[in-house]
Simulated assay, not measured.
Amino acid sequence: MKALIIGATGATGEELLQMILKDDTYKQVDIFVRREVNIEHEKLKVHIIDFDKSDEWKALVNGDVLFSCLGTTLEAAGSKEAQWKIDYGYQYEFAKIAQDNNVNNYVLISSSNASSNSLLFYTKMKGKLEEAVKALSFTKLIIFNPPILIREGSERKMEVIGIKVIKFFNKLGLFHSQKPMETKLLAKAMIKAVKVLYNGQHSIVGQNILKFT
Results as ranks from 00 to 15, higher is better:
134 K>H: 03
134 K>F: 00
202 H>F: 06
182 E>W: 03
95 A>T: 02
186 L>T: 03
65 V>T: 11
207 Q>A: 06
171 K>Y: 10
116 S>R: 08
199 N>H: 06
16 L>I: 12
60 L>S: 13
84 W>Q: 08
45 K>T: 15
165 V>R: 14
15 E>K: 10
66 L>N: 10
75 E>S: 12
118 S>R: 05
2 K>T: 14
39 I>H: 02
96 K>P: 12
151 R>M: 12
40 E>T: 07
173 G>Y: 13
91 Q>S: 13
93 E>I: 08
105 N>W: 01
99 Q>F: 00
6 I>G: 05
123 T>A: 03
52 D>V: 00
205 V>F: 07
1 M>G: 09
140 K>N: 08
101 N>Y: 06
15 E>T: 07
42 E>C: 00
62 N>Y: 10
174 L>C: 09
108 L>R: 03
155 E>D: 14
197 L>V: 01
22 K>D: 15
129 L>Q: 01
64 D>C: 05
3 A>I: 05
68 S>A: 15
27 K>P: 04
114 A>P: 05
94 F>R: 00
145 N>R: 15
193 A>I: 03
52 D>G: 01
211 K>D: 15
88 Y>P: 12
31 I>C: 07
178 Q>H: 09
200 G>S: 07
181 M>P: 03
115 S>H: 04
147 P>C: 04
141 L>M: 11
206 G>R: 00
119 L>K: 14
168 F>W: 11
151 R>W: 05
35 R>C: 06
178 Q>C: 01
137 S>L: 03
183 T>W: 04
206 G>Y: 11
33 V>A: 09
62 N>I: 12
35 R>I: 06
115 S>G: 07
34 R>P: 00
16 L>R: 09
144 F>Y: 09
16 L>N: 06
198 Y>N: 13
49 I>A: 13
51 F>E: 03
96 K>C: 01
183 T>K: 01
180 P>C: 01
5 I>S: 00
195 K>W: 02
154 S>Y: 10
83 Q>G: 03
185 L>P: 02
124 K>A: 08
186 L>A: 05
176 H>D: 10
187 A>P: 08
134 K>A: 02
156 R>N: 14
75 E>H: 11
127 G>L: 05
180 P>T: 06
4 L>A: 07
14 E>Q: 12
184 K>A: 00
170 N>H: 13
44 L>V: 13
148 I>M: 10
97 I>W: 03
180 P>I: 01
50 D>N: 14
104 N>R: 13
15 E>G: 01
44 L>K: 11
161 I>T: 04
39 I>G: 01
179 K>Y: 14
175 F>P: 05
101 N>I: 00
121 F>E: 13
128 K>S: 11
176 H>Q: 14
204 I>H: 09
74 L>C: 08
97 I>D: 01
174 L>I: 15
132 A>D: 05
94 F>K: 00
189 A>G: 11
55 D>Q: 09
82 A>R: 07
83 Q>A: 11
